[in-house]
């Protein structure tokens, strides 16, 4: 044993507590986890559908409504340009909006479940 190599100095992967499959199954069916799942999905899924549709609207208008997109708004800035910038703006806003929801609603719920399961494991 004395000749064994010393352990490597690099950071080791942590080996966190792993609850049993039964514990996971029970948790998955619990009301508390159901509430976290609902809070996440009912926010993220409709928002995803919304921004994909909003983006596709932009692509389809570019394709099939060239006249409208070419309408000048002021001097050389046309509707297509404004629409493109609006996609930037909505991307920033959605990212902020989701993160606010996650910080306020999802993180505390997830943290509570995690702490409880770790204590049980």
């Amino acid at each position: 044993m004395a000749t064994e190599e010393p352990p490597p100095e690099g950071s080791k992967d942590i080996h966190p507590a792993q609850p049993t499959t039964e514990a996971f199954l029970a948790e998955q069916n619990s009301a508390e986890f159901g509430e976290l799942r609902r809070s996440y999905r009912s926010f993220a899924f409709p928002l995803t559908v919304a921004f994909v549709l909003w983006y596709l609207l932009y692509v389809l208008l570019s394709n099939y409504a060239g006249g409208f997109m070419g309408t000048k708004v002021f001097s050389n800035i046309n509707v297509a340009f404004v629409f493109g910038l609006a996609q930037f703006l909505t991307t920033f806003l959605i990212a902020w909006f989701y993160s606010r929801h996650a910080n306020a609603q999802l993180d505390p719920k997830a943290e509570a479940i995690k702490d409880r399961m770790e204590a049980d494991a």
């Binding site: 792993q18 609850p19 499959t21 948790e27 998955q28 976290l36 996440y40 479940i113 399961m117």
Partner: peptide
Amino acid sequence: DKGKYAELEVKSLTGIGAH
């Protein structure tokens, strides 16, 4: 595999057991 899905779903939303 219901058990594995329970593990994945609970882990993915809560971070329990994450490396």
